[in-house]
Structures are given as structure tokens and as C-alpha cells.
Design a protein around this nucleic acid. Structure first.
Lengths: 107, 107
DNA sequence: CTTTCATTTCAATGTCTCTTGAGATATTGA
DNA sequence: TCAATATCTCAAGAGACATTGAAATGAAAG
């Protein structure tokens, strides 16, 4: 993950509906959920939901596959962990003894 | 960290200058950096830098303390790890056997 | 106390983003 | 094929955000 990718991912996540979609899919696990179920859960109109799902997929945070009539979306776990790694990269210039996040141990 | 806090933090991070500031401070370690040095490093004007530093501080991602003539900023590591924990909370409904991020092990 | 340095405030401008509603597209089953 | 279901596309309007440059504030040093 490089800076432009991280910015795209963070922009995508910094919106209420999209953050809820991603968290829903993270909780759902690798199997994901059909678009319709996501919309029901979030109370979003079909066009609004489609707009945000497309946005998230372009950002690489989710992926989709057609399944019969509906389309099933799932979290892109590697992109999420890549984003997290990017945020903490080179933390404290590699000196773990003065590195608070390592000491906190709750990442 | 709750959803409104996470949204505030993600919005703050989803901007090039602010993401660079945070990464610079994460790399700098707990000691942080004076505002002027951050501006020099990023090539940002004083008003632009001040705008983004204020934004980040309001979002809880950085903190400041006066030091002589200048103001020293440092990363709020707890807020960052809290944000990361929020993103991955309840991952895969707590079933680690089907949990890709746990398997990837690179968070 | 005055000068100097560091940072902040302010208003104006241009740009980007979200939502809405109507219509289009694709897939399945009768 | 026809109808039903599920999702996507599009354009327009309202709102939010980043940048700029000039001026103002605040703290510290001489």
C-alpha cells in the first residue's frame, strides 16, 4: 500500500454509510453479504447503496461476485490490513523501546 | 472509540497534507516535532499548516505543547490504535477459524 | 518595553462530494 | 417471450472542504 492508495481508502472510509458497509462486511466474514441485505440493514435506497458500494470497490476495500439475481459483496481484508500497516510504518523510526503503540499492545 | 469518533478521525486522515503530517509524527516518535519543522518538511505555508494541525488536533489524532517560541506536535498513538481496533472489531463474528486478517498476520 | 519570531484568524474562491428520483440494465422463472 | 426481481446509471442541486494571501495575535528575547 502506497500513499495514493491509502488516501483513496481513507477517503472511502470517511463517510458514514461506507464505514457502516465495511464494518458490516468485516463482521460478516469472508462469505460477505448480498447487496440487498446490506441495504436492508442500513436503510439505504438502492441508488445510494450502489453509489457507495461502487466507491468502496474502486477503492479496493470490498469485492463483489454475482450470485444468481443478486450480487454478493465481501470485505477485502488484505487492503484493510495493508492500510493499517501503512499508517504505522516506520513508527518511532524503528526504535521499539520508545514506541508507545508497541507498548500499548492493543492494535 | 465509537463510530462518530472514527468518522472524525478517518475524515481527518483522508487528506494528503494531514496524512503526511500524521505519518511524519508517527515516525518522529513520542517526542514529536515543532510546527515549523513540519511545515519545512512538507513545504506547506503557515496558514495551511495551521489549518490542518488544528483539524488533526480537534480530531484527537495529534496533541501539542508550547516549547519556547514554537509549538511541538506529537502523534496521539492511543487514538490511532483505537481507530484500528474499531475497524477490525467483531471481525468475522468472532470466529477466528474463518478470519482472514488473523490468518494473514500482518496487521 | 519593544522587537522579533511563530502561529493563528479571516474572507473569498474554486472544487469536490452526497443525495435524490427517474430510468436503464441484467438475470431468473413462469 | 413476458414479468418480476435486483442492481446500476445518470443528471441536477445543495452542501462541505481546501487553498490563498493579508492581517492579527501571542509569546519570548534583548
Amino acid at each position: 500500500m502506497d500513499e495514493p492508495q491509502a488516501l483513496t481508502a481513507l477517503s472511502a472510509l470517511s463517510q458514514e454509510t461506507r464505514l457502516r458497509i465495511v464494518r458490516l462486511l468485516v463482521m460478516a466474514g469472508p462469505g460477505g453479504m448480498p447487496a440487498g441485505s446490506i441495504g436492508d440493514e442500513l436503510g439505504a435506497s438502492s441508488s445510494r447503496l450502489s453509489f457507495h458500494l461502487t466507491h468502496l470497490e474502486h477503492a479496493g476495500l470490498i469485492q463483489s461476485r454475482r450470485e444468481g439475481r443478486s450480487i454478493r459483496y465481501s470485505a477485502a481484508y488484505e487492503a484493510l490490513s495493508g492500510l493499517i500497516a501503512f499508517l504505522m510504518r516506520d513508527c518511532c523510526q524503528g526504535r521499539p523501546e520508545t514506541c508507545p503503540p508497541a507498548a500499548l499492545g492493543n492494535i
